[in-house]
Amino acid sequence: MALLEIRDLHAAVEGEEILRGINLTVDRGEVHAVMGPNGSGKSTLSKVLAGHDGYEVTNGQVLYDGKDLLDLEAEDRARLGVFLGFQYPVEIPGVANTYFLKAALNAMRKHRGEPELDAVAFLKLIRERAKMVNMDENLLKRAVNEGFSGGEKKRNEIFQMAVLEPQLAILDETDSGLDIDALRIVSQGVNAMRSADRAFLLITHYQRLLDHIEPDHVHVLVNGRIQQSGGKELAEELERSGYALFEENAA
């Protein structure tokens, strides 16, 4: 059984259809890149999968590990291992990063019927994962994303992913706003997390992220539909010719 199976997914925002029949199958252990120009529906796809209620699914089906994903609340999807790395991570003033993560991790453990991690074990875990993504320990004590630079926010997303160990990680434009050093660090984090039972969905506009994270499959999303799928060479082709060709086809 595939980890994620999207069948003819249609979704709209305020009555306007953005996704117009997406079909996509992701197996465990795979890294898929969804590429597309601005306004193609990339971010909408990630938010619909994560359960944002500002989007209305008008048709289609999404199976996650055989379960009807669209039937679940956002928090239940997260507890089942769906992680969204936000394009614009949100600030939560006054709530320490570690406190937030502990609440998240324990909510997931509780869902799985596991006991809460004690303070010592938790601290050990986050220190180890912070090291993995080269995250300054001072950021752990600060309020969630408050006053973080763009790069720090993105790194914090990857750090959270490393702590929460999802089955399916959807990274929405994680590369945008990163300088080359930050991009390398974020990519190293993702690569370290790759494993046979975990899948990634990388949502990106540019090919440069794929220089650092090698995808198994590349999909071109234009006008709410996947116009073409292929291997990593498709991303290279896009880099040369741009999205214009696909936009013409889609029109």
């Binding site: 994560a50 609340e73 997260a78 991570p89 939560i92 998240a104 909510a107």
Partner: peptide, 8 residues
């Protein structure tokens, strides 16, 4: 949404 996406 951010909190819920983290399972909270």
């Amino acid at each position: 949404f951010y909190c819920k996406q983290r399972g909270i």
